[in-house]
């Protein structure tokens, strides 16, 4: 496994192993994330048990399952947010476009600009709307004023927020509604041009109307990003995802096309969960 850090600007999401030099035919897109025997612990408590899962590039993958099944932990290993938690460790293989994500020497700062994250509760910084979106880009690069303004505008357009906030970019981000704040957080993540967007129950703190607008946004964004979303909301998973993976007690029970998974699951436990018998 090579540990080459790629310049995200020049990287087109594509499988790195060189097995398919010709563009992949439609229906079998290149892999973005690959997991082989991935296990994870918090202290002595094992939260993930030997997960094997492939996530295709430019697709939406939904992770579902009851609380405490390990899906959020999985998400937090993908951008190594688990590094901030004492006692978190993992074994097995987890790679993003061929980059070994469990490598201790991996530069997590660089990784996180390639893997954006949207959190459960909107967490805009107590700064202006403009400064929120510009925060990430300013960390990594030095921009001219006009470039930065353009970047902020494009990012806000991409998260479908531009029309609502274009006249008040200097206002505090905290003056926005919950749904707007969450879209601002998506714009903030988009602005650093990530390859993958992680979303940890992004709609759980929002009302139905804001949820609908975020779902629509997710469907549109998958053209440019690989999206991995954790959700408790099963209709949402079936609406937005191309692949759904069901987790229970730290194990991957079943994954596949959401229509199949929700209507004719292979496993008994999946059936119980999606039909609302537990969880």
């Amino acid at each position: 496994m090579s540990h080459v850090l790629m310049d995200p600007a020049t990287t087109i999401p594509q499988a790195q192993s060189g097995s398919t030099p010709t563009p992949a035919p439609a229906g079998t897109p290149p892999l973005a994330v690959e997991m082989r025997g991935l296990s994870a612990w918090y202290g002595t408590h094992q939260v993930l048990q030997s997960i094997d899962l492939d996530i295709a590039a430019n697709r939406v993958c939904a992770l579902i399952g009851p609380s405490g099944c390990g899906k959020s932990t999985l998400l937090r290993w993908l951008n190594r947010m688990n590094d901030t938690i004492a006692g978190a460790r993992a074994s097995g293989r987890l790679s993003l476009h061929g980059l070994d994500l469990l490598d201790r020497a991996l530069d997590v700062v660089d990784l996180r600009r390639r893997v954006g994250m949207v959190f459960q509760k909107p967490n805009p910084f107590p700064k202006s709307i403009f400064d929120n979106v510009a925060f990430g880009p300013r960390l990594h690069r030095a921009y001219g004023r006009t470039d930065l303004e353009e970047l902020v505008e494009q990012s806000l357009r991409a998260s479908a927020l531009w029309e609502e906030v274009k006249d008040r970019l200097k206002k505090s981000a905290l003056s926005l509604s919950g749904g707007q704040q969450q879209r601002l957080c998506i714009a903030r993540a988009i602005a650093v041009d990530p390859e993958v967007l992680l979303m940890d129950e992004p709609c759980s703190a929002l009302d139905p109307r804001s949820t609908a607008s975020i779902e629509e946004l997710i469907r549109e964004l998958r053209e440019n990003y690989t999206i991995i979303i954790v959700t408790h909301n099963m209709p949402q998973a079936s609406r937005v995802s191309d692949t759904t993976a069901f987790f229970d007690e730290g194990k991957l029970i079943e994954s596949g096309d959401p229509d199949t998974l929700f209507t004719t699951p292979r496993e008994r436990r999946t059936e119980d969960y999606v039909s609302g018998r537990f969880g």
């Binding site: 947010m81 990784l111 996180r112 959190f119 107590p126 925060f135 960390l139």
Partner: peptide
């Protein structure tokens, strides 16, 4: 200052310096 703001900054690729000097102290 809520932990969620620190998480948000880290997730954008901040170093500890960035998180502290650009998010936590201003907040």
């Amino acid at each position: 200052v809520p932990q969620s703001l620190r998480d948000g900054a880290y997730a954008l690729g901040s170093t500890k310096f960035d998180v502290t000097a650009k998010v936590v102290v201003p907040a």
